[in-house]
């Protein structure tokens, strides 16, 4: 049977069940600390490399192009951007059908070369287009936890 046929019933063969018993605690890092603390204030921060004329969003401690240290170059980049590309998702990550499809967009933050992937809200799939101006909608201040979901979604700027 081996190598020729696929087994049909687990009772036909010996097998075992196992798992890799690991869990993790991830630090957000030095640049992430700045990014998420500012997010709790309702602000989006980036990091600018003067010599490469690039602004990274989210901020980083270093410029990947020239390796300059950027920790003294964090700046508020505002909450506005444009839809760089987008999709509408009908299936969840476990393969099940989503009750309500969600719109996911890559948002290029204005004046930067970086961006944030997030949901679009207060709009309909048929109304979204590449190049659409959008802005971040934050959760109420008391509900913010210092994570990317402190932004509820981005919505079209009317």
């Amino acid at each position: 049977m081996a190598l020729i046929e696929r087994y049909q019933k687990t009772t036909d063969i010996s097998y075992w069940e196992g798992q890799i018993p690991m869990s993790y605690i991830y630090t957000v890092g030095r640049a992430g600390e700045k990014f998420f603390r500012e997010m709790m204030n309702g602000r989006i921060f980036g990091a600018k490399c003067e010599s490469c004329d690039v602004t990274y969003v989210p901020p980083r401690t270093y410029c990947e192009k020239c390796f300059a240290r950027l920790e003294d170059h964090y700046a508020d980049v505002g909450g506005k951007g444009t839809v760089h590309t987008f999709t509408e998702c009908h299936e969840a990550y476990d393969g099940t059908k989503k009750q309500k499809p969600s719109i996911v967009a890559m948002i290029r933050i204005e004046g930067t070369q970086g961006g944030i992937v997030h949901w679009l809200g207060e709009t309909h799939f048929k109304d979204v287009y590449i190049g659409m101006s959008v802005e971040a909608v934050f959760k109420a201040k008391k509900d913010r936890e210092g994570g990317i979901l402190d932004i509820k979604y981005f919505r079209p700027i009317k």
């Binding site: 991830y26 630090t27 957000v28 890092g29 030095r30 640049a31 992430g32 600390e33 980083r60 401690t61 270093y62």
Partner: peptide, 8 residues
Amino acid sequence: YAQETPKE
């Protein structure tokens, strides 16, 4: 326990 991310 480093605060830095692996990348950092």
